[in-house]
Design a protein around this nucleic acid. Structure first.
Lengths: 176, 176
DNA sequence: TAAACTTCTTAATTTAGATCAATGCATCTC
DNA sequence: GAGATGCATTGATCTAAATTAAGAAGTTTA
């Protein structure tokens, strides 16, 4: 797993919430968005395209933050669903905690580093999607996230990589 | 064009530099990275993959900032080349101006918004690369960047969209 | 203005990966 | 413990887009 992000703003009294596997935390079309800091468990965000197909945008295991920064920044309803892949403990954050006035200097700098890393991750993902073959994509995924494959169904990994589950299955069988 | 970013840190005495079309501003493998604020002209970043093929990562016209945040954040040599597509006036920025200590509260908040928008742009790009057909990609590009097509050779637009110039040519001829 | 590059277009061929379909296993659950 | 549901595997097609190739315009340069 890549170097983990961190909590951008400690609520004075952060409330940990519990959710069962399968719970939907955010639906497409919602406007007043939250972000979620994952204490324990595994969460994912995804879109559903015009043909009804799911595309995994990201996975968030322990210590990650997940939310829709795009919708927040550009002020429109979210395209992303967010749901729990495992029983999960998390802290709800207001997404505008990123740049709120009351934040102090240190907290703002933390958030900058957090966002910088996210930009970096996305840059690598874009370049991968533009140039890598199916098996190169899987190899990169294993390198970046060595621990996740055991916790995530393969068809979701395939979706994250932009390939079909059938192709991923074939790649894995060839690798033996 | 999407809402434009802005200068994250005004140097007390910013030095405008001039470069001719074709000038390379950054080479793959460089370590002490700059970012560039474009006053006038057009600049692009791209990678070259193992088969020698170019992939355009982004275009930066007037008022945009371009650099390699990924390499900066993860502290490794850059994968990105940066060059001028037009004669260009720009201001060189230290890339660590993003989160440097001497920045005041307002400047940090500006930088947060800047990075937030970049995350948003990249999120949309990832989802596009995962789900859109060649002609859907071109349609999205025209919507997001209505002014750029006249300034950029088509084979570079194709590269940005992750398709071949031949396919883009066919799409454009059908659209008439 | 001739030669040399660039860029775009068009068409024929190939291919990686998608789609479709059938089967085998686990796990739930009633 | 019988049926249902969810997921992985395998193989047979299909297809969108890549590759290859060649020529037409347009631009630079010398």
């Amino acid at each position: 797993m890549s170097p983990s992000p961190f909590l951008p703003l400690q609520d004075s009294n952060p409330q940990i919430k519990f959710f069962k596997k399968g719970t939907i935390l955010q639906n497409k079309g919602e406007v007043h968005l939250k972000a979620f800091y994952i204490k324990k468990g595994l969460v994912r965000s995804y879109t559903i395209d015009s043909k009804g197909k799911q595309h995994v945008f990201m996975f968030a295991p322990e210590e990650w933050i997940i939310g829709d920064i795009e919708a927040y920044q550009y002020e429109h309803p979210t395209e992303l669903f967010i749901d729990c892949l495992e029983d999960t403990e998390l802290i709800k954050l207001k997404i505008d905690h990123l740049d709120q006035d009351q934040l102090n200097h240190e907290q703002l700098k933390k958030n900058l580093r957090l966002l910088g890393r996210r930009v970096g991750l996305l840059q690598r993902r874009v370049l991968m999607l533009m140039s890598a073959t199916a098996s190169e994509r899987y190899a990169l995924f294993l390198k970046d996230y060595p621990l996740l494959p055991n916790r995530i169904p393969q068809y979701m990994i395939a979706s994250y990589l932009g390939i079909t589950p059938e192709v991923l299955s074939k790649i894995r069988s060839q690798k033996t």
